[in-house]
Simulated assay, not measured.
Amino acid sequence: MALLDGVYPFYLQQRKVFLFDVSTITVIVVFLTFACSFLLIIPGIRGRVRLYWTLRVLFNLFMGVGIVTVQFTGDWETGWVRANTSYKSFSPALVSADIGLHVGLAGVNISTLDAGTQQDLINETINYNEHFPWSFNADYDQRYRQGLERGLPRPILYVAEKFTTQSPCSMQRQYRISSHYASATLWVAFCTWLISNMLFSMPVLIYGGYMLLATGAFMILSLLSFSTVKNSPMCLIQFGTVTLHTGYGGSFWLTLAIGLLCFVAGISVVTLHYCNLDLLKTFFDLREDEAEEFQEMTEAYTNLHFVNRGLSPSQPPRLNPNII
């Protein structure tokens, strides 16, 4: 990279566009480990219970990994635009680049990709991504100042400046508050999901269904909290004559899908509890447990005195008339 007045205006090393976050990979690996551990038990289960057990485990793990993963993803809201913009500071050269904005619950990712033209003007490949966090333990403005000192590409700095606290747009305040409420509500949904799994392992299935309904409700509340940003006036992010527009991303729709699945599963459990309790207990493998418990209670409380005399436990013994 060429020097400009003796100073490197950009990275000493190129930053690549992110594919997966480390936290997301960690969560996925942990849940995959749980799934593999449970699936190893399947050969020891016989009959239809094997199918029911597999469906329950995979469905619960899918909901759990979805609730936790969307906390760390950066595509709750995304947008791309192709624009002709200046790339280097103090340089009149214009390049054609794809500029992307990815909003998550913990910050924003701003990407700049080469559009395939005019690379000879800057003598490098445009492929950068920068993350600007706004969590409680991170200072967005400080990260932005560090970006200025390092000399980030101008499209990244232009978009990042819209989210600073000094910007008249107040976009960071709007996104940060809604994201914090959405994140807190999702953690409550994760807690209710754990409680539902504990209740489904006991003969109180209807309460597990209620907890699934509560999980779905909290997930929908998190979506409503995040979507309040759309109702606020927003500054336009313009590059010449084109404007960067954003829409809901994959994490938003994944959260909506899991919330609806929780509603469907919870309503199904509650309905079967009142309409067909035997089928519900069969699906959760509780009928055999009750039969074994009844057999153990019968054997434990059978009076051997009546059995030896050939009388049933319900038949009262005859009184001896010689006994006064």
Rank of each mutant, 00 (worst) to 15 (best):
A106K: 15
S314P: 00
I195G: 07
M211N: 06
V108L: 09
Y175E: 01
L39H: 13
G66C: 13
L256E: 03
A115D: 15
I267S: 12
K230D: 08
N276P: 04
V30A: 12
T164M: 08
I237E: 02
S225G: 03
I25Y: 03
V29Y: 07
I177P: 01
N123P: 02
N303Y: 09
G209H: 03
V17C: 06
G250F: 05
T228E: 00
R173N: 04
G44A: 14
I45G: 02
V57L: 07
F306K: 14
T255P: 02
V229L: 00
S268Y: 05
G266E: 03
F136V: 11
Q14W: 06
S96T: 12
S135M: 06
E149Y: 08
S314E: 13
M234C: 03
L55G: 14
N303R: 12
T117G: 03
V49L: 11
R143L: 03
L113V: 04
T33I: 10
L311F: 09
C36D: 06
A265V: 04
I237F: 05
W53N: 07
L254K: 13
S312M: 10
S179H: 00
G259H: 04
M219S: 11
P316L: 10
M211V: 02
Y128H: 14
R154L: 15
S268D: 10
A291D: 08
M171G: 02
F59I: 01
T282K: 15
L236Q: 11
P153T: 01
G310P: 09
G208I: 05
T185A: 13
I195A: 13
I99H: 08
T192C: 08
A160K: 02
I67H: 03
I41Y: 09
